Amino acid sequence: MDGEAAQLGFWEHVGVLRSGVLFGATVFIVAAILVFSYGGDLLTAKLLSAAPSELVFLSPLGPFLFKMKIAFLGGAFVSLPVWLAFFSRFVGTALPREKRLVFYGLVAASFALGAAAIAAAYLYLIPISLDVLSGFTVPGTSLMLTAESYLSFVLLQMLVSFVVLELPVVIIGLAYLRLLDPAALTSRLRVVFLALLIGLAVLTPTTDVFTLLIVAVPSFVLCIAALAVAKRVYNRDIS
């Protein structure tokens, strides 16, 4: 594979990239059409199951645009493994064999952690956040959620959770590429933990310290474990 990658010129690489992008885009479009036509109601029911009250639309186009967003979301989830497989193979061919295996392992770990982050947000973070936020009231007002605002809230929770759990892979990957010195980051561990705690407090807006600790402690453990692995990777690369 290394010899094959070395024989390809610039425009050949562009052609391979274009073919992969077209294939990924085709999978995304087909999956989105199928979700819109057949699986939209099931996916919508799953996403709306944690809603604290009945959702409303404020315009005649609201239901159609909502179903379009659900279809795009389903297409993105279905096509994500295809995109990851293509880009990891495309980038991996330019790396030496031993580095390529580590790179593929990081991609697989990133995908697994991303799936775990989405599941944790759906099963735990979103219901807790909605329960806490619905307890904040303003006299003389009532809470009325639109379907669009609820979907945006759910996607934001999943995105932030995804970023938090991807942090270990990012730390190890940057150390492996020698773009980050884990020892320097370890020396500022208090700052790292404070920033992570603030991010988790925003992610899970709860007044219950115990609930925050349930989320924060595993995140701290992941960060420490990632720094330990990153140190080994960084020092081994030096030697």
Rank of each mutant, 00 (worst) to 15 (best):
M1T: 08
F10K: 09
G15Y: 10
G15H: 12
V35T: 13
K46N: 07
L47C: 07
L48I: 00
S49H: 14
S53Y: 06
L55K: 03
V56N: 07
I70C: 03
L73S: 07
L73C: 03
A76V: 04
W83P: 06
L84Y: 04
A94D: 03
P96V: 07
P96C: 05
E98M: 10
K99P: 02
K99I: 02
G105M: 05
L106T: 00
F111K: 05
F111D: 00
A115V: 15
A116Q: 07
A117H: 02
L123M: 10
I126A: 10
P127G: 01
L130R: 05
D131Q: 13
G135N: 14
G135I: 07
G140S: 06
L143I: 14
L145N: 06
A147G: 04
F153W: 03
V154R: 00
L155S: 05
M158T: 06
V169G: 01
I172N: 00
A175K: 01
R178D: 04
A184Y: 11
L185I: 10
L185A: 11
V192Y: 02
L194W: 09
L196I: 14
I198E: 07
I198N: 12
I198W: 06
T206Q: 08
D208T: 05
D208F: 06
V209Y: 12
L212M: 09
V215Y: 07
A216K: 09
P218R: 09
S219P: 00
I224P: 00
I224G: 01
A225N: 12
A228T: 12
V229Y: 04
K231D: 10
R232H: 13
V233T: 08
R236Q: 11
